[in-house]
């Protein structure tokens, strides 16, 4: 009887340890709202890879690109999109690679691709935007693909083909140790026009 009780105690101890570790490792989306500006941000970490999205207001996007040589029409086209300042950090101890083409925006049961920098560049060609404006645009966007060694990170803008105020989950993927990994940012919402 005593032997049975001892084994049962071991089982529960192991179960509690497992639940504690599993609970701590479950990636949660942390949400914050700036009290002054009302700008919202979302952040999560999965397997040592950290991703955060911070809303970019239409005024911010418009001002940024007007100051870099965009004409009003082109600046307005970008400002009307759903834009986030995006930061990805490799805080794990292994190298990773990612490609934005693998990332999906989830709305209900449907999955959509992000609007990437080369797609925007086709529009800027039609607008006949000058070289310096397009150079600034290229380097201000989050890279289409990149390799991160441990400690590497990057920051840039990502855009989503959604109206202002719309919400979605973002499934982001990366390759680590030969395997495709993924995480989810939940309940991300595009900034409203103010």
């Amino acid at each position: 009887m005593r032997y049975f009780r001892k084994r049962t105690r071991h089982f529960w101890t192991a179960l509690v340890c497992f639940a504690a570790v599993a609970g701590a490792s479950a990636a949660e989306t942390r949400h914050a709202k700036d009290a002054e500006t009302g700008i919202e941000s979302w952040e999560t970490q999965e397997l040592g890879v950290n991703l955060s999205l911070t809303q970019m207001l239409p005024d911010q996007a418009r001002a940024f690109y007007l100051a870099r040589g965009f004409d009003r029409e082109a600046a307005e086209a970008y400002a009307s999109a759903c834009v986030f300042q995006t930061v990805m950090r490799n805080e794990s101890s292994a190298p990773i690679t990612f490609h934005l083409g693998d990332w999906r925006m989830l709305r209900g049961k449907r999955a959509f691709k992000l609007k990437t920098e080369p797609e925007w560049q086709h529009e800027w060609e039609r607008h006949q935007l000058a070289g310096p404006a397009r150079i600034a645009f290229r380097w201000a966007q989050f890279p289409l693909e990149q390799d991160f060694e441990p400690g590497d990170w990057n920051q840039g803008m990502t855009t989503y083909p959604l109206p202002r105020g719309a919400c979605f989950d973002l499934k982001f993927k990366w390759r680590m140790g030969g395997k495709m990994r993924e995480g989810i940012l939940k309940g991300v919402c595009c900034a409203q026009d103010r």
Partner: peptide
Amino acid sequence: SIVLFALMAGATEP
């Protein structure tokens, strides 16, 4: 539990 802990420990300071 050990595997999960090891994976979490892999996340280091910048």
